[in-house]
């Protein structure tokens, strides 16, 4: 643990109707860390991300973010607190221009003050977004859309950035450059949570890792201390 916890999840359970998606999940994330959440399809990774982002309400347990309870705050409020989610599948607004997508990222009052400054930062990070500013975002390539989705999330000036499957369907070169830029942001003090299919890349990149299995945390530890075999076993529930 490098410093004070930014996010503290304590024994939450999440249901979709009758389906019990998360079982008694607890985790703590330290400020400035990169945390990786690893698990097979349906292990509950995305559910966990959406719950942190306030899109699902836990049936019990608590979520504390920077010292405040945020569980059950309502789906559109957590972003104002400083949590931004880059959703799986990118979900950029297809008919809006690249520029408008970024502007919408700064919808919350706290982010509106520094729009121009932040857009400039994001353009430095991903220059292609400046070049394509006036194009509809549906015309972008997959990698460019992913950059836009990350840039849009950063526009809200988050303290915590949740990235759900950001390398899905992208070419290795593109993935590499996106991760490089994430490292840059991380060095500026942003806390990042990553959900990835690729165990190797996750462990290499992260400070800390959680392995999920069937809605529960099966294994956790510092990324450098977790062996790949150990992770794989937990991943498959062996």
């Amino acid at each position: 643990m490098s410093s004070a916890p930014i996010l503290k999840i304590d024994q939450i359970d999440v249901f979709y109707g009758d389906f019990h998606a998360l079982w008694d999940v607890s985790l703590t994330i330290s400020k400035g860390d990169i945390v990786s959440i690893i698990g097979a399809n349906g292990a509950g990774k995305s559910t966990l991300m959406y719950t942190i982002a306030g899109q699902h309400v836990p049936a019990n347990g608590t979520i504390e973010f920077m010292g405040d309870r945020i569980d059950g705050m309502g789906p559109h409020l957590s972003v104002g607190k400083g949590i931004a989610l880059v959703p799986e599948g990118r979900r950029v607004f297809p008919r809006l221009t690249v520029y408008d997508n970024l502007i919408i990222g700064a919808y919350t009052p706290r982010a509106r003050a520094n729009i121009d400054e932040n857009i400039k930062k994001i353009h430095d990070l991903f220059p292609i977004l400046a070049e394509r500013g006036n194009q509809r975002s549906i015309t972008l390539s997959g990698g460019e859309q992913q950059m836009l989705a990350i840039g849009r999330a950063l526009m809200s000036e988050p303290e915590l950035l949740l990235c759900d499957e950001i390398s899905l369907g992208l070419a290795p070169v593109v993935i590499k450059s996106i991760y490089k830029q994430l490292e840059v942001i991380s060095q500026e003090g942003l806390t990042i949570v990553l959900v990835e299919q690729d165990v190797k890349r996750s462990l290499r990149f992260a400070d800390y890792a959680y392995v999920m299995l069937e809605g529960k945390i099966a294994l956790q530890g510092k990324a450098v201390e977790l062996g790949e075999d150990q992770v794989k076993k937990a991943y498959f529930g062996m």
């Binding site: 559109h76 972003v79 104002g80 809006l96 408008d100 919808y107 919350t108």
Partner: peptide, 24 residues
């Protein structure tokens, strides 16, 4: 306008709009 863009964003993708903090 912010509001106008938010309306268009919500029209494109309600779920993603909520993630941006828009009360759809």
């Amino acid at each position: 306008s912010f509001l106008g863009r938010a309306i268009r964003a919500a029209s494109d993708d309600v779920g993603a709009a909520r993630l941006m903090g828009i009360d759809t």
